[in-house]
């Protein structure tokens, strides 16, 4: 099987992210693979291990943004493509989806393209379905369980009401949720291999497309208003007394 996983590089989830003079800063927090995309890589590796084939990871990002790719290679991906082009900064999800769809087409013969559920910086969760639409492939999103038989892929999707079991003929786009199971840690050998790997960089010209135009604009990013909560510590001589005071305070807030 020919498998692809689309991965994004984001600031670590523990980063303190703030806006200063209209620009987003995350201090010296490291850039990492989007946590959801680790599940995409894990699912891709398990599919490859079961059915044979190759896994290529694709990331759209800056020329120096290789952390996510190195992590995926260290987990066991066979190769990687970084798509970098000055025309690609500040794009909306439709535009990223166009670039990813073009790359998947250029690679050719792909059976499954895996995605994370959403990127933890933009929090949009749109790209997998949009890429699928552009490719005219079915989108099996939010997968918790995946199985492949002949040319059909079946997933259990995590939806509000439980799980929806959906199948489709490949090629297909699949996005992953955390229920899939913990992604593996890179092995020592994997890390060494990833450190030496040459990652080809594709430009838009390589993809044969012109720069997509974003229709979404974000004129202003701000820090959320600080909530000046002062925590009132409830004390008392017994758990019962504390509980009684706390219950009365909560009832007085009229939130029940």
């Amino acid at each position: 099987m020919k498998i692809v996983a689309c991965i994004k590089q984001v600031p670590d989830s523990a980063a303190k992210v703030v806006v200063e003079n209209g620009r987003v800063f995350w201090g010296d927090a490291p850039l990492v693979i989007n946590p959801w995309d680790e599940f995409a890589v894990e699912a891709a590796l398990q599919l490859k291990e079961k059915h044979g084939g190759t896994l290529t990871v694709i990331s759209v990002g800056g020329e120096n943004e290789k952390e996510a790719i190195k992590h995926a290679l260290a987990m066991g991906a066979d190769d990687a493509i970084l798509i970098a082009d000055p025309a690609l900064s500040g794009l909306d999800t439709q535009s990223i989806a166009q670039v990813l769809a073009s790359a998947i087409q250029k690679i050719g013969g792909v059976d499954v393209a895996f995605f994370g559920r959403q990127a933890i910086d933009s929090d949009s969760g749109l790209t997998p379905a949009q890429t699928a639409r552009l490719l005219n492939w079915p989108a099996l999103t939010l997968a918790a369980v995946i199985s492949v038989e002949a040319d059909t892929i079946k997933v259990d999707r995590a939806i509000e009401e439980g799980r929806q079991v959906v199948s489709a003929k490949m090629p297909a786009v699949v996005s992953l949720v955390k229920d899939y199971g913990e992604p593996r840690y890179p092995s020592f050998m994997g890390i060494r291999k990833a450190a030496r790997a040459e990652v080809p960089v594709w430009s838009l010209a390589n993809l044969g497309i012109s720069a997509p135009t974003s229709v979404i604009a974000w004129p202003e990013i701000t820090n959320p208003p600080s909530r000046n909560v002062v925590c009132e510590i409830i004390t008392g001589s017994s758990p019962e007394e504390i509980a009684a005071t706390l219950a009365d305070k909560i009832l007085a807030e009229k939130v029940l």
Partner: peptide, 18 residues
């Protein structure tokens, strides 16, 4: 023009669509 939380609510973004 909308407001939406990004970076898991660490920031707020105003957005619009042309």
């Amino acid at each position: 023009v909308v407001t939406r939380p990004i970076y898991a609510g660490k920031l707020l973004s105003k957005e619009t669509c042309s």
